[in-house]
Design a protein around this nucleic acid. Sequence first.
DNA 1: GTCTATAAAGCGATAGAC
DNA 2: GTCTATCGCTTTATAGAC
Lengths: 185, 185
Amino acid sequence: MRTTLCREEMMDCLLEVFRRDGVEGASVVDLMRAVGLQKGSLYHHFPRGKTEIAEAVLEHVERLFEAMVFSPLREAATAVDGVAAMCHALEVYFAQGRKVCLPALIGLGPTRDQFGTAIEGFFQRWIKALADAFIKAGMPADAAMLMAEQTVVDIQGAIVVARALGQSEPFLRAMKRANQRVALP
Amino acid sequence: MRTTLCREEMMDCLLEVFRRDGVEGASVVDLMRAVGLQKGSLYHHFPRGKTEIAEAVLEHVERLFEAMVFSPLREAATAVDGVAAMCHALEVYFAQGRKVCLPALIGLGPTRDQFGTAIEGFFQRWIKALADAFIKAGMPADAAMLMAEQTVVDIQGAIVVARALGQSEPFLRAMKRANQRVALP
DNA sequence: GTCTATAAAGCGATAGAC
DNA sequence: GTCTATCGCTTTATAGAC
């Protein structure tokens, strides 16, 4: 059995800690245990400490969404297919609303400004990818932007409510609405 | 000038600290400064410390929403009036999406389970108050519950996206949708 | 009911051996 | 590149004077 993790595996472990505990709630000891390294070794990989780890994790999330959501939306034959692929991936990634969206959690918290560029970019790119899919399906650009924003808003709100109520149904209903929105005229 | 604050004024100050910094991010020193008391005095009011303060603040939020949202929804002549009153109050309370919803922030974070009952109750009562308004307007009970949930989801998601993008527009558009949703057949 | 002083633990971060 | 050991600071919480 291998005892050391490659970079991508490390980022996955670190991401899970931040998603569970938040950036303030997660300690360096928590992060260090998650990747199976001692404190000094973790600081070797990330000399600026927790801030640098959080920055790297946010870039990792961006890459995950590029592969999981943005790219499928761009390359699907129809907008219906693209949204369906997105929803399937999100249902797994957000564990039906039990796991949170790290950029959203950071955006609501006190460290928002510190990671402002990454947070803004994440949501802008997500909304843009959706809008482009809607435009490709024949929708006017301004209407597409509004519907794209509403879709992301709906999904983020569904995670908040699903987590708060301890139920998956609000999240699953948002997935259904996302598919219906693009299927109608 | 008065130097000591009454209980309600104290709760307002403490709430603002938690809304800005979160429960993990806020230190006892932050809370103590916000109410203008020294450490020992704050522990006199809340012997169990930060946990007890957070519990009391969540009860305070519940009371604020009862007066600001739930009661207007119940007592308005029409559902349209009730939702309009709610949206007007929310636009002030959430500062057009610049300030967060504490129960939502806690619900996404690591202390969710610790305050589970308060968080669940807050969202259940909000959704219930909206559903009752929709039922009073002639909507079937099951459709009313779904529309109520979708309205709260939309508002919470709008706060997430507005904060993340540093714009008020996504929040204001959600307010518009809330009013339109109840105005249509 | 407010204050000062202090305890005890955990935190992020660094130094240096291997 | 990983480890152990430790520094200095902040944290929550308590004790006791006024």
